[in-house]
């Protein structure tokens, strides 16, 4: 369990983390979501005692990080920036970490095996691909068989196979009853792995909710309609008290689950429909709306996000 209380970090004028209060519980994957620059990495560094909070407090199972005896056996972390000497072999990197926390040497072999780096154990880290480096970082996190795990953007730079592997790993770690806290700037990624969601923007807490709740609350359903008799259809809908909005490419959108009702209306007025389909807005959209005010730099690109883009992904998760 990780408990944050009013955790705040300022770098000079810049407030990177602003009074964060939440709890990360065991047995589930907790997603830590926020756009780039939201303060996720800073928060994680404060949890690990690397950066000193300007105000507030963070405790791991009730204790401050530096009060943990052999901390790697309580909490393991994969940080964003590469944390290994490129000239040292994977094996020696893990060995020096194991020794510092009184972890038996055989664990080095075990975790190398777990992450699939056994074949390159004696190779220097500088020859590693981004994905292999990420696996080495995960091996270091698992080294002390800790009850709590922190992953900062673990799928960054991984190929699809690696991404799948990380997702499965995180879920299985949580299923073993461990506390798993994983950050990402991608809603789609979170939707696939996290059971609980903590959303931040510009350092502030925006949401702390179960994934199911977040989906229920944020996935807007609507009906998409295409018709060659658009003007007449709009009139009919208007008379029936239904608001339709035009969405760029000549289609109409109506909020809610009104597909049947609209179909019957069209039939009654003998209108031709080319499409009448119930839709779900993507979580990615919901996330963007939630953080819209807090994004540091907007892209201002004209291309609208297609609702279909992530919409199917999260349902599988």
């Amino acid at each position: 369990m990780i408990e944050l209380e009013g955790l705040t970090k300022r770098y000079g004028e810049k407030t990177a983390v602003d009074h964060l209060t939440f709890t990360v519980r065991p047995g589930i994957v907790t997603g830590f979501l926020g756009p780039n620059g939201a303060g996720k990495s800073t928060t994680m560094r404060m949890i690990l005692g690397l950066d000193r909070p300007t105000a507030g407090d963070v405790r791991i199972d009730g204790r401050h990080y530096d009060e943990l005896k052999d901390p790697l056996t309580s909490i393991g972390a994969l940080l964003e920036a590469k944390g290994a000497h490129p000239g040292r072999s994977a094996r020696n990197h893990l060995l020096c970490l194991a020794q510092s926390n009184g972890i038996p040497d055989r664990r080095v072999r075990e975790v190398l095996d777990t992450v699939g780096l056994t074949a390159v154990a004696r190779k220097k880290a500088k020859g590693f691909s981004l994905g292999m480096g990420q696996r080495l970082g995960i091996a270091a996190a698992l080294l002390g068989d800790p009850r709590i795990l922190l992953f900062d953007e673990p799928v960054n730079g991984l190929d699809p196979e690696g991404i799948l592997w990380v997702r499965t790993l995180m879920k299985s770690l949580a299923a073993e009853g461990r506390t798993v806290f994983v950050s990402s700037h991608l809603m789609s990624e979170m939707a696939l792995t996290a059971d609980h969601l903590v959303v931040i923007g510009q350092g502030r807490l925006l949401a702390d909710t179960s994934m199911a709740d977040f989906i229920a609350r944020n996935s807007r359903s609507y009906v998409r309609i295409r018709s060659p008799q658009r003007e007449r259809l709009l009139d009919v809908l208007h008379q029936a008290g239904i608001t339709a909005v035009e969405s760029g490419d000549g289609t109409l959108e109506v909020d809610g689950d009104k597909a049947e009702h609209i179909g019957e209306l069209a039939a009654r007025h003998q209108l031709v429909l080319h499409e009448l389909s119930p839709q779900q807005a993507s979580l990615e959209e919901a996330f963007m709306q939630l953080t819209a005010e807090s994004v540091e730099y907007h892209a201002h690109s004209g291309t609208p996000v297609s609702p279909q883009q992530w919409g199917d992904d999260w349902k599988k998760g």
Binding site: R45, L48, G49, L50, Y65, D66, L68, P71, L72, A77, L79, A81, K82, G83, A84, H85, P86, L97, S100, N101, A140
Partner: peptide
């Protein structure tokens, strides 16, 4: 220069 310091201090916070 290698970023190892964060790994090291997470392992040995004293």
């Amino acid at each position: 220069s290698t970023g190892m310091i964060r790994t090291s201090l997470a392992a040995v916070p004293q």
